[in-house]
């Protein structure tokens, strides 16, 4: 539509994006030296001082994470402009279960998804021949492997932890969806769902997007997501910075350390009701990790915060009976527990 209405020069958009990328890299590359200069030079703080440690941490991490967040959300926004739920459904409909679970988990990462649309999406999938277990693989992967979580994990823990998180999250989505499919739980889907005549093909016939539209899509994603999470991220980093400077070394070892077997289930249970503040929790958790918490416990906590959200379960109650929601939470929770223990043992 807009491609024909106003043939705006694509090269101009490309040039602007390229210029922005260069400026971004220049600033990002100098953040660490800037933070050191500000803390120890301009503010004249003594190295080794607790307050100085806190300030240096915040001045470096806060802009770093915000910049990473902006660029990744923009990139993911552009990738997502290629995938719509309609397209994903067409790929998944009628697929054999095992292959379907794998595909659904991967597509869950790149398809735009918001938990407020979980119900229409669920109905749209199961009434057009996407198996129940495959639908669940999608519904588990979509919120769990989320760009904000990945950015924070990458920025604060490094790429290995971010990759571990994404990898194990995908495996949990595939296996949990497969298990739910094997259990044949269709009887616990509310009866009216399968009777609903879903109007297939009515929606989704929007005109193909031009590159200008895709860039705008990415920009909108940044405004939308970064605009919503930035206070949590900054608050989280501020708390994290304080812990970093003031809490004694090895303080967390007794509570969240490898030795405490109950720490993984506890982390999962505490994580379920926390949802919107996920972005603020990661920096806190990162600081705790430096004080002796175990990585497996931390990953389990992260996954249960994002992957098992109470509000989403309440929304899904409209289409699923309680035993199915409980099974869903149970299977995913079990997967998260296994991940937590395995990493505590292996790493």
């Amino acid at each position: 539509m807009s491609a024909t209405r106003r043939p705006r020069r694509t090269w101009l958009v490309v040039l602007l994006v390229a210029l922005g990328a260069c400026a971004w890299w220049l600033i990002y590359d100098h953040l660490e030296s800037f933070a050191k200069w500000l803390t120890y030079g301009l503010l004249g703080m003594a190295a080794g001082n607790r307050l100085a440690k806190t300030v240096a941490f915040f001045v470096f991490e806060a802009p770093k994470v915000m910049m990473l967040l902006t660029v990744i959300v923009f990139g993911v926004g552009i990738v997502r402009s290629f995938f719509t739920p309609e397209r994903t459904r067409r790929i998944l409909a009628g697929k054999r279960e095992t292959l379907g679970n794998v595909l659904a988990s991967l597509l869950g990462v790149v398809t735009p998804f918001c938990s407020c649309s979980a119900v229409p999406l669920f109905i749209g999938f199961v009434t057009t021949g996407v198996p129940l277990g495959v639908t669940f693989s999608f519904l588990i992967a979509a919120p769990m492997i989320n760009e904000v979580a990945l950015v924070l994990l990458f920025g604060l823990f490094g790429w290995k932890v971010a990759a571990l998180y994404a990898g194990t999250g995908l495996v949990i989505a595939m296996v949990a969806g497969w298990v739910i499919g094997r259990l044949r739980l269709e009887r616990w889907v509310e009866g009216w769902v399968y009777e609903t005549a879903s109007g297939v093909g009515l929606a989704g016939d929007e005109a193909p997007l031009s590159w200008n539209d895709r860039v705008r899509f990415g920009g909108d994603a940044v405004k939308d997501i970064v605009g919503k999470v930035w206070p949590y991220v900054l608050a989280g980093i501020a708390v994290g910075a304080t812990i970093h400077g003031y809490v004694p070394q090895d303080f967390m070892a007794s509570i969240m350390g490898k030795g405490a077997w109950w720490s993984v289930p506890l982390a999962v249970v505490i994580g379920i009701p926390m949802y919107s503040n996920a972005a603020g929790i990661i920096p806190v958790v990162q600081a705790l990790l430096g004080k002796g918490a175990a990585l497996g416990t931390v990953l389990a906590f992260m996954m249960s915060v994002i992957g098992l959200s109470l509000p989403e379960m309440i929304i899904l109650r409209k289409v699923l009976k309680v035993p199915l929601i409980a099974t869903f939470a149970g299977v995913v929770g079990l997967g998260i527990l296994v991940v937590g223990y395995v990493f505590n043992i292996v790493l």
């Binding site: 749209g124 609903t196 989704g204």
Partner: peptide, 12 residues
């Protein structure tokens, strides 16, 4: 919800 579904909409 059922009226929304009838239009084939999967994202609100």
């Amino acid at each position: 919800m059922d009226e929304i579904i009838a239009y084939g909409v999967m994202m609100t």
